[in-house]
Design a binder for these strands. Structure first.
Length: 475
RNA sequence: GGCCCCAUAGGAUAACGGCUAGUCCAUCGGAUUCUCAGUCCGAAGGUCGGGGUUCGAUUCCCCGUGGGGCUGCCA
């Protein structure tokens, strides 16, 4: 049975790189009918926090990556938080076993200069401890070579003399990363360790520990890192990096996962729902090269997903997003029936890539006191016959029914024809009159969705307000 | 400094050792008898450098260069 894990440390938000690692683990587990385990590596007391743990789980859920065992749901190999495991004495016990095997020792550190070890012993150095010396447990690195096979990199070989003896239990009694991972991966029966390439050089250290215990090695696979535009590690400098950031910026989890999947994974068809790709997934189609995060491609992909999904699903996601991240704008959905809103969204999504952009596009349809953009006011004023255009359109709309796009087109083209003004000009003046902006969904479609009453009201409103713009600039 | 990983257009990828190095994003140009941030069409742009092996190298080997990682009582 395949068992893989994702083991974040709760010292920050979930990073896209972490999410990608989690995604590949998840995909592999699902494909192999195995288990995906979530373990929290909170052995760094200084930097770890419960809030970050909460946020990481929240982000993972948003991504749709569900786990079979974890700190919140438990499992047969718990607990799943290293701090809790430490309380049970798990790491201490295993460290003592290594001491019994003479493969690790107590290291007594100098009082003044804690980096210096003044005594190595297999017996607990109670006297020194009482006097206030730091005491750690260090793993003894033997001479020789450590090699392993990496699923992506192939055969790896390290000479042991590049490693010093490594601390496995800190003076505060907590295990270090390299020790805790080994003990936990062993106890949790992890079969495949799939993680970022930044751990490649740690692997031989961990393998030495496996070997000291006589434990069977899992498979290892180190996937390349995600970099920013300048090839330095992706950081806030390059833009947002946390899952939460992209969520807040109006990206869909499906799209973000899709992007993380194709980033360094060659596929025939680029746009997909990653949950449909479980069967096709294979570890060896993952690229072996670090990759640069391309915000533009992500946005493009997000637009594709936005346009492709069921409008009702999009409505739900949009509504939710407003409530979570744009509380001040959430009111726009009130006092409208869902049907109208969905029709609005249907035509607006054709032009946008993110929920942020969608919000801007949708807003004027849902607010009667919509604002007028400066560009519109400017072009309204510079076109001397603006008011005339709007009045003519108003008159024509009043006594005509318009049920389909063609009727609306005919009517508007007729306005232009009779006034002998270019269609483009007429349409732009009317567009802005109805929605306050010069960039909107198709004008005829917009009018159809607005309906007769709103259209007429809005024409009247702009005629009134537009009059005052003209007065203000009169010579 | 030491050890390790990586290298095809600006970014992501494709090409049993063999056609003119293919595709997606971005860029530029055109179209969409209404806007464009949407859609369609088109263009430009690449095998990091130097040595080998070979009839033939993007592909295999060596060196260099560049980028990245590790080198913590961080993970």
């Amino acid at each position: 049975m395949v068992r893989v894990r994702f083991a974040p440390s709760p010292t920050g938000y979930l990073h896209v790189g972490g999410a990608r690692t989690a995604l590949f683990n998840w995909l592999f587990a699902r494909k192999m009918n195995g288990k995906f385990i979530l373990r929290i590596e909170d052995t760094d007391l200084e930097r770890s926090s419960e809030e970050f743990e909460f946020l990481i789980l929240d982000s993972l859920r948003w991504c749709g990556l569900d786990w079979d065992e974890g700190p919140d749901i438990g499992g047969d190999h718990g607990p799943y938080r290293q701090s809790e495991r430490n309380k049970l004495g798990i790491y201490q016990n295993y460290a003592k076993k290594l001491i019994d095997l003479k493969k690790a020792y107590y290291a007594v550190h100098d009082l003044e200069n804690p980096k210096e070890v003044i005594l190595k012993t297999f017996e607990w150095p109670e006297n020194y401890f009482k006097k206030g010396h730091d005491v750690t447990i260090k793993f003894k690195v033997e001479e020789g070579e450590t090699s392993f096979n990496d699923l992506l990199k192939g055969k790896m070989k390290f000479s042991n003399d590049i490693f010093d003896d490594l601390v496995i239990i800190k003076s505060n009694g907590f295990p270090t990363y390299n020790f805790a991972v080994v003990v936990d991966d062993y106890l949790m029966k992890i079969t495949h360790v799939i993680r970022g390439e930044d751990h490649l050089s740690n692997t031989p250290k961990q393998i030495m520990i496996y070997q000291a215990f006589g434990w069977e090695l899992p498979e290892f696979m180190h996937i390349p890192l995600i970099l920013g535009r300048d090839r330095s590690p992706l950081s806030k400098r390059h833009g947002g990096t946390s899952i939460n950031y992209f969520r807040e910026q109006g990206y869909l989890s499906k799209a973000l996962m899709n992007y993380l999947a194709i980033l360094g994974w060659s596929v025939e068809e680029e746009i997909f729902d990653y949950k449909d790709k479980i069967e096709n997934f294979s570890l060896n189609s993952i690229s072996n090269k670090s990759v640069i995060f391309d915000y533009q491609k992500l946005e493009w992909l997000n637009g594709k997903h936005l346009r492709k999904m069921e409008i009702e699903d999009l409505f739900g996601i949009f509504h939710n997003w407003l409530l979570n991240f744009r509380k001040d704008d959430a009111f726009i959905l009130e006092n409208h029936n869902k049907d109208y809103i969905m029709k609005v969204m249907e035509i607006c999504r054709e032009k946008v890539n993110t929920l942020v952009q969608l919000l801007e596009m949708v807003k004027p349809f849902l607010i009667d006191e919509y604002e007028y953009s400066e560009e519109y006011i400017k072009s309204f004023i510079s076109e001397t016959r603006s008011l005339e255009i709007l009045k003519k359109a108003l008159d024509d709309f009043k006594d005509k029914e318009f049920k389909n796009i063609e009727d609306i087109r005919t009517l508007l083209e007729n306005v232009a024809k009779e006034l002998e003004i270019k269609k483009r000009v007429v349409f732009q003046i009317i567009r802005g009159a109805l929605l306050g902006k010069l960039i909107t969904p198709g004008l005829f479609e917009s009018i159809k969705v607005l309906g007769k009453n709103r259209t007429i009201q809005r024409l009247k409103r702009t005629i009134e307000i537009g009059g005052s713009w003209l007065k203000n600039v009169s010579p």
